[in-house]
Amino acid sequence: MQPLNSGILAGMPRATLQSMLTSAQQAYAELSMGKKGVSFSYTQGDGTRSVAYQPTSVEQLTQFIMQLQRALGQGSRRRMVRFRY
């Protein structure tokens, strides 16, 4: 297991990490309920416009949420397995 102060999120302020976690969890809920769109188009006076966002998967979002939780010291930690003889 990585120490809490290492990894790609090291050095980020705790408030920023918490804000990112909240946003990621909200996105997870919206994606799970089918509320997240990835491509939009509309018509303006001078023509048609479209915007496309890169789709993400529930698995990628779950991994990101778990990474943020580890950086914040949250989430479940597994105890080390020890064998008795």
Rank of each mutant, 00 (worst) to 15 (best):
K36Y: 06
F40V: 11
M33A: 14
G37C: 11
Y42M: 04
R49Y: 01
G34K: 02
Q54H: 08
G34N: 03
E30S: 04
P55T: 06
T62L: 11
S39W: 04
T56H: 10
T56P: 07
G45F: 12
G37R: 08
K35F: 10
Q63C: 08
T43P: 02
K36Q: 14
T48L: 01
V38S: 15
T56F: 13
G37W: 05
V58M: 08
G47D: 00
Y53D: 15
K36E: 09
T62N: 14
G34W: 00
K36D: 05
K36A: 09
K35W: 10
S57K: 08
D46V: 02
F40I: 10
Q63D: 13
M33L: 09
T62M: 12
G34A: 06
L31D: 04
V58D: 13
L31G: 03
S39R: 09
Q63T: 11
T48C: 02
T62S: 14
G34P: 01
Q63M: 14
Y42H: 14
L61D: 11
L61K: 05
G45I: 06
G47Y: 00
A52E: 05
D46I: 02
V58F: 07
P55Q: 07
T43S: 07
R49G: 02
Y42T: 04
S32W: 01
Y42R: 08
R49Q: 03
D46S: 05
D46G: 01
R49L: 02
G37Y: 10
T48S: 09
L61Q: 10
Y53I: 13
Q63A: 12
G37A: 13
G47P: 00
A52D: 07
L31S: 06
K35Q: 14
V38N: 09
K36G: 06
V58S: 13
T56D: 12
E30C: 05
K35R: 15
V51M: 12
T56Q: 14
K36M: 15
T48W: 00
S39A: 13
M33C: 11
S41H: 10
V58G: 09
E59V: 13
D46E: 03
K35L: 14
V51R: 12
G47H: 00
S41P: 03
L61M: 15
G45E: 15
L61A: 12
L61P: 11
Y42K: 03
V51P: 06
E59W: 06
P55F: 04
E59R: 12
